[in-house]
Every structure is written in C-alpha cells, then in structure tokens.
Simulated scan of single mutants.
Amino acid sequence: MADIDCPPPRMSVMLSMPDRPRAERADAARNRRLLLESAASILRDEGIAGLSMEAVATAAGVGIGTVYRRFGDLSGLAYALLDEREQQFQSEFMFGPPPLGPGAPASARLRAYLCRCVDRLTEQAEILAKAETGSQRYRTGAYRVQRHHLMMLLQEIDPELDAAYLAEALIAVLSGRLHLHQVADEGMAPERIKTGLDQLLRGILRSSAPADEGALP
C-alpha cells in the first residue's frame, strides 16, 4: 500500500476552525464553555431554527462581537458544538472494534464506516448541514482525518484506485445538506441510503482485487 500522510496514532482532531489555538487562557476557556452551553441550550429548546449568533450572545449575556470573534460565523459555531461527538466518532473508526475499527478487511471497514456515517446523519444532519454552509469545511481537522482514513482504506483495497478523488466523492454524498434533502424531499429512509452506498461500494470493488468483493453481502 502506498504511503499517505495519515494522522499519528491516537490523535483526535476536532471539527473546529483550523486556526483555533491549541491552548487557551482560563478566562478564554470559561467564555468558550459559556457560549457553547448557551448554544446547546438553544438547540435543545428551540431546535436548529433558533440557533443564531445573536441568540447565543443574548443567552450568554455577552456582546455579539464576542461570539463572532470566538467562532467566526454560524458555521464555525456549529463545528464547535460538534467537537465532542466528532472526537467520539474518530475514536470509533481509528481505535474501536472491527469492522469499523482495525482488525477487519479494508472493504469491510469501509462499508462499516459508510453505514456509521448514515447513522450519524440520522441523528445530527441538521447541525452538520449548518456547519457545512461555511467556507472552512474542507480545511477543518475533521475533514482531513476522515479523508485520510478513507484514502488509507481505499489504497489498501487497491493501490491503483484514485484514493484521493474517491475519498472526497464518498464524503460528498455523506453531507448533512444532502441527507436532509434525501429524507425530507425524496422520502428516503436510512436503510435505502445505506443500500445505495453499498451499490456505490460494489462499483469500487469490482474495479479492484476480486478478493475484496467478498466483504459485501
């Protein structure tokens, strides 16, 4: 398998904006927690429609400039709200039990990854869609980790595959905005979406080593 620039073992990369400092002063950390707690409270009480920079500032009792300086825009705020769940997801596919985690054939891990993404979208599509509206999506640590993970699996399946292109193509069909459209406008159930992803994966595997095709039902 060709070498790629994968994250070091047991490193978790959060969803937040790429220029976020790694270490924060105690007062800055407190302010961040206050803003995120206020945003989470709005989500619980009003849903995604109630989430705005103005609403968070009011709930936290701070000026709106403070919210913008901390998160940049509403997309950055949404990414920050997803940090903890993103780290948990990373832990599952990097270190968890097979088939999602190490120990299963690459094709089985890839299928488990795609299915797990659909489960996440079923639970989190609205806030993921909100996060995707910003310009920083492709620069976030989470996007890079997911892209590298998919590239690793694809190259293990077949080094001749265009792993970089296919990884980004798969991520594109797992977006929150597309999922909301599929469910709300097209009436697609999660199992139908998973079946469609299986069909995409079969197409990839047919062009690779025959031994890998046996991982799909």
Rank of each mutant, 00 (worst) to 15 (best):
T122I: 00
E123N: 02
E123R: 07
E123T: 08
Q124I: 03
Q124M: 10
Q124R: 09
Q124V: 01
A125N: 03
I127N: 04
I127D: 04
I127G: 00
I127V: 11
I127F: 02
I127A: 02
L128Y: 04
A129S: 14
K130Y: 07
E132K: 02
T133R: 15
G134H: 10
G134E: 10
G134Q: 11
S135I: 08
Q136L: 14
Q136C: 10
Q136H: 13
R137V: 13
R137A: 12
Y138C: 12
Y138L: 14
Y138F: 15
R139W: 11
T140R: 01
G141Y: 04
A142G: 03
Y143E: 09
Y143I: 08
Y143C: 12
Y143Q: 15
R144M: 13
R144A: 15
V145A: 05
R147Q: 14
R147V: 10
R147I: 07
H148W: 15
H149R: 02
H149D: 01
H149I: 05
L150H: 06
L150W: 03
L150P: 09
M151V: 09
M151D: 06
M152Y: 14
L153M: 04
L153D: 00
L153N: 00
L154F: 12
Q155N: 15
E156V: 07
E156P: 00
I157A: 08
I157V: 14
I157T: 05
D158L: 04
D158Q: 06
P159N: 14
P159T: 11
E160V: 08
E160G: 11
L161K: 03
D162P: 12
D162N: 15
D162H: 08
D162Y: 04
A163R: 04
A163Y: 05
A163C: 06
A164C: 05
A164T: 02
A164M: 02
L166H: 01
A167G: 07
A167F: 03
E168M: 06
A169F: 00
I171F: 03
A172V: 02
V173G: 10
V173D: 12
L174M: 10
S175K: 07
G176Q: 01
R177E: 14
R177L: 10
R177I: 10
L178V: 08
L178D: 10
L178T: 01
L178Q: 12
L178E: 10
H179G: 02
L180D: 07
L180F: 08
L180T: 01
L180Y: 01
L180K: 03
Q182G: 09
V183I: 13
V183L: 11
V183Y: 08
E186Y: 00
G187M: 04
G187V: 01
A189G: 07
A189T: 06
P190E: 09
P190T: 13
P190I: 13
P190A: 14
E191V: 06
E191P: 01
E191R: 09
R192P: 01
R192M: 08
I193S: 03
K194W: 01
T195P: 03
T195W: 04
G196P: 00
G196E: 06
D198W: 02
D198N: 07
Q199T: 14
Q199G: 14
L200V: 10
L200F: 12
L200T: 02
L200S: 05
L200E: 06
L201S: 01
R202G: 11
R202F: 08
R202W: 14
R202A: 13
G203Y: 12
G203V: 13
